[in-house]
Design a protein around this nucleic acid. Structure first.
Length: 274
DNA sequence: AACAAGACCTGCATGC
DNA sequence: TGCATGCAGGTCTTGT
């Protein structure tokens, strides 16, 4: 479900609504997410203040004043809702309820691809979930030089590479398709043939992610912002989910195909091979 | 090392 | 109406 823009939107919502508050209770409805989160871990956090909410790739980082950090991933179907205690509807797949004074935050995830784990702030950088992740797309480290070197080593299709979190953090299926459309690059182009185009690839990724964040993310099935509002970037998709619909640039039909088990959408005219 | 495919789950839309 | 099928924002593991 959520890619970088959705996670970042949720992060901003949480940083405004619950950060700074003291966690007085953490209730676990069912611990069997991808990784178990134990009652002992919950007790360790109770009474602590949530200092800030950060993000790395698609992971939310809930930093507590005790030096503990909850690493939270929304998986495909995860949602976080915040509201006044008792005012948020309970849902079947609510896995964790964070109770603050005056605010309650519920983490639900029907498919349970998401996770919550506890880590020491000082060990975050080396944490197995985070250690191998590539540069954030808006960081200086995500440079034309870096990307050229990385793409030159690969033979596989460029679209699949953009989904690799080791190469770049936070891009998922929707925004990989959208970025390549903006760059005018066919998704099957072998990586090593795109090394001259890294400037436009980077600019396209930043543009689409930035616009999506400004729109509060994309709401398809599950995703809503922490305050319950919908994102609306889905109305700005140029290729994703638009199979057989006219390309907004050339009017020819958008194609769909599978790449590495994921749906890819592109315009064969505006995104020629190479 | 890079890559593809399968596995992990539930819910929903579609078609018979 | 019911049932089977396929698909969905992700990532981890396995095998080539």
């Amino acid at each position: 479900m959520p890619e970088l823009p959705e996670v970042e939107t949720v992060r901003r919502g949480l940083d405004q609504s619950v950060a700074g508050g003291q966690l007085h209770r953490l209730t676990l409805a069912r611990p069997d997410l991808r990784v178990p989160f134990t009652p002992g871990m919950a007790r360790r956090l109770e009474g602590k203040r949530l200092d800030s909410v950060g993000r790395r790739a698609k992971y939310l980082l809930l930093r507590f004043d005790s030096g503990d950090t909850v690493i939270l991933h929304l998986g495909m179907s995860g949602r976080i809702r915040v509201g006044k205690p008792g005012k948020i509807s309970q849902e079947k797949h609510d896995h964790a309820v964070f109770s603050f004074n005056g605010a309650e935050m519920r983490f639900s995830d029907p498919r349970r691809f998401g996770l919550m784990v506890l880590a020491k702030e000082t060990e975050l950088a080396e944490h197995p979930l985070l250690a191998g992740i590539g540069p954030e797309p808006f960081s200086d480290a995500f440079s034309a030089h870096y990307l050229s070197e990385a793409l030159a080593k690969r033979r596989g299709p460029v679209k699949t590479a953009l989904l690799d979190q080791k190469l770049i953090a936070g891009v998922g299926n929707i925004y990989a398709c959208e970025a390549l459309f903006r760059a005018g690059i066919h998704p099957e182009t072998p990586c090593h043939q795109t090394t001259e185009k890294t400037e436009i690839i980077i600019a396209s990724i930043r543009a689409v992610l930035g616009e999506a964040i400004d729109s509060g993310g994309s709401s398809l099935r599950d995703y809503v912002q922490a305050n319950g509002e919908m994102g609306y970037f889905q109305h700005h998709f140029r290729v994703y989910g638009r199979e057989k619909k006219p390309c907004i640039t050339c009017n020819k039909p958008i194609h769909a195909q599978r790449q590495a088990g994921r749906s890819t959408f592109f315009c064969p005219v505006c995104q020629p091979c190479r």
